[in-house]
């Protein structure tokens, strides 16, 4: 994404008040307590163990830590994780704004 187009998009979202995940392909997370996590707009699994799950997202990584993690379902754009989730961390490469 070029610098100009990104700025244009930022401007549109500001003006039209549209959620940013639609415009920027940003991940949307739905967390239910510490048991279930629903992630849309991911870009693939980087690492998966029962203690940690690392997902690639647009311009960065999403680290989910916990115990007894299970991928309940996985689709090209969605992941549904179950387990005892203790930590969600976002590792961005650059400034998305």
């Amino acid at each position: 994404m070029s610098r100009i187009s990104r700025k244009l998009r930022k401007w549109t979202t500001d003006v039209l008040d549209v959620p940013q995940d639609i415009v920027f392909d940003l991940p949307r997370l739905t967390l239910i307590g510490n048991r279930q996590l629903y992630i849309e707009n991911h870009r693939g699994v980087i690492h998966f163990s029962s203690e940690q799950l690392i997902l690639a997202v647009t311009e960065g990584k999403l680290l989910v830590a916990g115990k007894e993690l299970i991928i309940r379902a996985i689709l090209p754009e969605e992941v549904f994780i179950e387990g005892i989730i203790s930590d969600i961390q976002y590792e961005g490469k650059g400034n998305i704004g």
């Binding site: 693939g44 699994v45 980087i46 690492h47 998966f48 163990s49 029962s50 993690l69 299970i70 991928i71 309940r72 379902a73 996985i74 689709l75 090209p76």
Partner: peptide
Amino acid sequence: TSFINALAAERIVIWNVRA
């Protein structure tokens, strides 16, 4: 993990993935 990614890309339904 790349295997799982490939499955997702192929739209093969999988569930209860445990490491």
